[in-house]
Write a protein that binds this DNA or RNA. Structure first.
Lengths: 199, 199
DNA sequence: TTGGTAACTTACCGATGGTAAGTTCCTCGT
DNA sequence: ACGAGGAACTTACCATCGGTAAGTTACCAA
């Protein structure tokens, strides 16, 4: 069946996400992805250029979805809520997203394999996420003049903490979303708040 | 020239670390690694089993070196120093190690590519690092009865924060070791200390 | 000397990433 | 209505490279 490009690309990305997540990058064959979609290999190459390009596109989509989920949670908590609440809502949204999109997160963890020498696409999407977090900090009421670099560094700390706790939690079914949220928020919030609102 | 196995393995690991770091896993050919060592491919397969096995071994070595570097710094700060100092020394040692072993860190970031479905070797070495951090927390003077899970979670937060800040810093030459250390310590220490020593 | 084993090579296969050259079908301008 | 053009898609193919089988050479111990 003939299908417009945008739609076909979505189908391919969805299939590739599954195969990459369950087999890993190396063990995934382009023919298998193509077969699942009901298409042949050269079409995928026409649309995504290479195997790494396909993985890049998958990761980009996953990271974008993740960012949108957290931004949505920030919006839902209200524009002038205290920073602590906004912060907690974002962390919780992160873990909820991971629970709901396990394959996407497996993919995100593989980005080291493809971003070896500064893949610009991956790098830019990464920076988008950091920038969104920084913007949230900046929008907080009662925030003094904090240097940009410090703010960026804090955003990286939060994101890094969330990602690593998510990996750790994958092997421990006993740790729920709320537990994970509590661990990140309570370890990071104290230092963060005193940094961001110097008394 | 004929060389005993242990020595050859080290040579191969060193060469592989360089090639993996500069080309990435996919673009690295076993023949190139072999050629750099002055050996042929089947020998590498005899010693490491597969391409992924070789990467696993590289990552294992890199992570072990990293862990040893941080443990050394903990020892050098004295056995009954306050936790804050031990903590800061460990974080600083982490960033110093990354600066001195750039290729090793590029490698560590690629572990997602190979640890897709619970590579036991990688997983165990990861847990060693967490366990070492947990043990350091445990050894702190005046630490109350903190549940094990919380302690583990905190360790993951710290490690995740360090790793991500290291990646972020790679693109920003202006951020020195001390800046990075300050960012991690000040964002995490406040919350951590009040968690670990409930007043 | 010789048996055994550790270190290493030559020669090969098959899978798979990647491509060239089409073919079919829809659309749009005249 | 109809042909040009391009988008969607296929067949058939190549070349590289991960992996292996079967050997060969050097060392060492009895």
């Amino acid at each position: 069946m003939r299908v417009p490009r945008a739609e076909r690309e979505e189908q391919i990305l969805t299939a590739a996400e599954q195969v990459f997540a369950e087999r890993g990058f190396h063990a995934t064959s382009m023919d298998e992805v193509a077969e699942r979609v009901g298409v042949t290999k050269p079409l995928i190459y026409d649309y995504f250029g290479s195997k790494e390009g396909l993985l890049s596109a998958c990761i980009t989509r996953a990271r974008t979805q993740l960012r949108e989920a957290t931004e949505l949670s920030w919006a839902s908590v209200g524009p002038d809520a205290p920073l602590s609440e906004v912060f907690e809502a974002g962390v919780r949204a992160f873990f909820e997203f991971i629970d709901a999109h396990a394959t996407a997160f497996v993919l995100i963890r593989q980005e080291g394999a493809v971003a070896s020498q500064a893949n610009p696409l991956i790098e830019s999407i990464r920076e988008e996420q950091s920038a969104a977090t920084v913007a949230t900090f900046r929008a907080a009421p009662g925030l003094g003049a904090v240097p940009e670099e410090l703010l960026e560094g804090c955003a990286e700390v939060v994101i890094g903490a969330c990602e690593r706790v998510a990996v750790w939690r994958a092997g421990r079914p006993g740790i729920g979303v709320e537990d994970a949220t509590a661990i990140v928020v309570s370890s990071v919030w104290g230092g963060l708040s005193s940094l961001l609102t110097p008394r």
